[in-house]
Computed example of a mutant assay.
Amino acid sequence: MRQDVDGTMSAVEARKRGYLPTADVPALIGIERDPRELGKTMRREGLRPVRVGHAYWWSESAVVEWASRRRWIRAQGSAPVTCSEPGCERAAVSHGLCLKHYRRARGKYADAPAPRDGQPIGAGVYGSVTVDEEGRLICHECGQACLSLAAHITRAHGMSTAEYREVYELPRAVKLVAASVRERTGARAASPENLARLARVRDPQAAAAARTSDTFSALSRAQRQRRARSPE
């Protein structure tokens, strides 16, 4: 797809030989984009312009052929192209894929196993906790309904909350305690009596003095996980 560089052609001769200036490229392929940015994209993808005077011109046939292979290039106002991933109806944004599947295919963790969110497992599904009509949480392991799933899995199954979340792919935002319990706990903690007790024992100076150099150099849990994933 490389074009010969010829700085001796005039504009008239270039037109006759099928070349056009960068400014005319958007109109040729039916899109509205900054010609300079479009020229940079074409260069990155292998097209080479010719020099006509002090400007760069492009082979019309090469540009048309290049645009026909780019699903993200479409006429203004036309319907978006659907993602090429089977079963996905989102609009394609790059390489025939929607943003979700493009990130999954070409992102940092492209080789990671596909998430199993929504797939049934045991008494629930991956990625979420089932709540019954009384607001109790259903255990994935045994199907028991309980107000505190965190306490239940520790006593009944010997699992920590971190292990449970990892096995059933539960995000940190998914709570393992029923909403009714959280509301009662929050109301009790915010009572005037408890707030007054906290104010009496709170000592910011003592907390600041307890910090050491190790406190600031310690790695967070997220940092430790990132270091564990990164190659040596």
Rank of each mutant, 00 (worst) to 15 (best):
E45H: 12
L149A: 00
A145W: 12
N194E: 13
V93I: 04
A23M: 08
A189V: 02
L219D: 14
C83R: 02
L147D: 11
G18I: 04
V131I: 07
T41G: 09
R17G: 02
Y102Q: 03
T8Q: 04
Q225H: 09
P80A: 02
G143S: 01
A208V: 12
C146P: 06
A196Y: 15
D4L: 15
P192T: 08
H140S: 02
Y56V: 09
L219Q: 07
C139N: 01
Y168H: 04
L198K: 12
R71Q: 14
A145Q: 05
M42R: 05
R197N: 11
P192H: 04
A23I: 05
A150R: 01
V63K: 05
G158I: 03
F216G: 09
V174C: 00
P21I: 00
Q3K: 09
R69V: 12
S68D: 15
Q225W: 11
E141D: 13
V174L: 01
Q223E: 15
S78Y: 10
Q225Y: 11
L198G: 08
L28Q: 05
V63C: 03
W57R: 01
V81A: 02
N194I: 14
R17Y: 01
A110H: 11
P204G: 03
A207C: 10
V12D: 14
R51I: 12
P80L: 01
R197W: 03
K16T: 08
R200T: 10
R165K: 00
R182T: 08
Y56R: 09
T185S: 14
I138A: 04
L195R: 09
A75V: 14
V177K: 07
S217A: 15
E60T: 11
A196H: 12
E141N: 05
R221W: 13
R227W: 14
R188F: 15
Q76I: 14
W72T: 11
T41I: 15
Y109Q: 09
G135K: 00
S230N: 11
A27Q: 02
S59P: 07
A79R: 13
S61P: 06
L219V: 07
G124H: 00
L38Q: 09
S61G: 09
P35Y: 10
I29S: 06
L99A: 07
P26H: 11
Y56T: 08
A110S: 06
D111S: 08
A199I: 08
G30C: 09
R17H: 05
L28I: 06
A62G: 06
R104W: 07
T212N: 04
A92P: 00
K100I: 13
G18R: 07
A114P: 06
V12L: 11
K108E: 14
E134C: 08
L198A: 11
P231N: 01
P21A: 01
R227C: 10
R136S: 12
L137S: 05
G135Q: 00
E134S: 05
H152D: 00
R116L: 15
A55V: 10
G143I: 07
H101G: 02
G39L: 15
E133R: 06
A62C: 09
V52N: 03
H95D: 11
R33P: 06
A110Y: 05
E85M: 10
A218Q: 07
A228G: 03
T212M: 04
R200M: 05
V177Y: 01
M1D: 08
S128Q: 11
A207V: 14
C146S: 13
R70H: 03
